[in-house]
């Protein structure tokens, strides 16, 4: 991988970290607020179902996770394992696709729950 590509990966991880700092705080804050009166699947679905704001929020959340996690995993694998660098790049990219696909599917699934 070129020096430019590696530099941009580093930048992407920093920017995604900044995004995560905000969305994770909102996410956890909402959980703490929401469980005050007991937590049920019905209540969660009632809040996010059909709500475009929450869909957008979790869309951004998943995107930031899919960028941030695999880059960090790539660094850990490069430093801590003898796995060839090329293979690690492929594995990290596959992990990013997996996170994005499953994450967005979950967010969209809750948004459209019950055929809304």
């Amino acid at each position: 991988m070129s020096a430019r590509a590696e530099t941009l990966l580093w930048l992407a991880q920093r920017i995604s970290a900044m995004v995560l700092a905000v969305v994770v705080a909102v996410h956890i804050g909402t959980i703490i607020y929401a469980v005050q009166g007991g937590l049920s699947a019905q209540e969660i679905i009632g809040r996010v179902q059909g709500n475009t704001g929450w869909l957008a929020f979790y869309g951004v959340f998943v995107a930031a996770v899919a960028v941030h996690g695999p880059i960090g995993l790539r660094t850990i694998l490069r430093e801590m394992t003898p796995v060839p660098a090329r293979l690690i790049d492929v594995a990290a990219a596959a992990f990013a696709v997996l996170l994005a696909w499953t994450g967005w599917q979950a967010a969209y699934g809750l948004y459209g729950f019950g055929g809304a």
Partner: peptide
């Protein structure tokens, strides 16, 4: 800057 960038350079 090209020599010091990347996984074996400052970003490590």
């Amino acid at each position: 800057l090209a020599a010091v960038a990347g996984d074996a350079g400052c970003h490590a």
